[in-house]
């Protein structure tokens, strides 16, 4: 058993999308420092259930930092602000007894609150739907090693592809922009020879879809990069800007 913490939690409670929410304060004692942040919320929810209250709704699934389900603003920082850490991988040893922890959902007009800390991120799926793919049908692929990919481009594609779609970038951006998310997919696919054929239409359509969904604009503050649990770089945004400009002026996209 590890050390124990006594905490005060201020959690955003909201019944559904249409209702207005508010912060509710809970005291939680005896939290093990080895517990993860979500496990701490589990403990709270068990307590709430048995006392006849409704547990706090929060999204989660794999709890190992890869599915991208979890996320909330913890003390004003997306995922709690630890470097490259999702909320499920944030551990209570980063807090101390007596701390007041403020927990608020990710906020953006494009990501409306569903309940408590759960937000609707289907806008991100719609951005992918608008062009985040390579149009190859099952069965029509050539032999894999016929497509050679330069190692630096393969590495760039891999780094961009690490995005888990958690929306922390949107949450952390002062303008609720989805540029980091969108650029990660644009650069992942556009860096590869098999994805370059559609790269121009892809970047145009995906950028357009961002706006349709009501995301804000990039103001180059790079808070998205700081909040990203997978270390996606804003150089992807620069690359997307460049490709967008080239695509709109019918120039070939640079590498």
């Amino acid at each position: 058993m590890g050390k124990r913490l006594d905490l005060t939690l201020r959690i955003w409670r909201q019944k559904n999308t249409n209702s207005s929410g508010e912060f509710v304060t809970y005291d939680l004692e005896n939290v093990d420092v080895n517990a993860s942040f979500l496990e701490m919320l589990d403990v709270l929810n068990e307590k709430l259930t048995l006392s006849g209250d409704e547990p706090v709704a929060f999204e989660h699934d794999c709890r190992e930092g890869i599915c991208g389900s979890c996320g909330a603003m913890v003390n004003g920082k997306a995922h709690g602000g630890e470097d490259k850490t999702t909320l499920c991988q944030l551990h209570m040893r980063h807090f101390k007894s007596g701390d007041v922890i403020v927990i608020e959902p990710f906020r953006a007009k494009a990501l409306p609150v569903v309940k408590d800390l759960v937000v609707d991120r289907s806008a991100l799926d719609r951005i992918i739907e608008s062009g985040g793919y390579i149009s190859v049908k099952t069965g029509s692929a050539p032999e894999a090693n016929q497509i050679l990919v330069k190692k630096d481009l393969a590495d760039r594609a891999m780094d961009a592809a690490s995005c888990i779609g958690c929306s922390a970038c949107v949450a952390a951006c002062p303008n609720a922009s989805a540029m980091l998310f969108t650029s990660a997919k644009v650069v992942h696919l556009g860096s590869l020879p098999q994805g370059s054929t559609e790269a121009a239409s892809r970047v145009i359509n995906m950028v357009d879809e961002m706006k349709t969904n009501g995301f804000g604009n990039c103001s180059n503050e790079y808070l998205c990069e700081a909040a990203c649990p997978k270390g996606i770089k804003v150089s992807n945004i620069a690359k997307m800007n460049q490709w967008y400009k080239q695509a709109m002026t019918n120039q070939p996209l640079s590498e």
């Binding site: 099952t138 692929a141 050539p142 032999e143 594609a157 992942h188 098999q194």
Partner: peptide, 22 residues
């Protein structure tokens, strides 16, 4: 064998050698 072909064509960024091969 076909799975790898299919996935590469979809843009799955498998690890590569310096020569560009998988």
């Amino acid at each position: 064998v076909n799975i790898i072909d299919q996935c590469v064509a979809q843009g799955v960024p498998f690890a590569r050698e310096y020569g560009g091969h998988l």
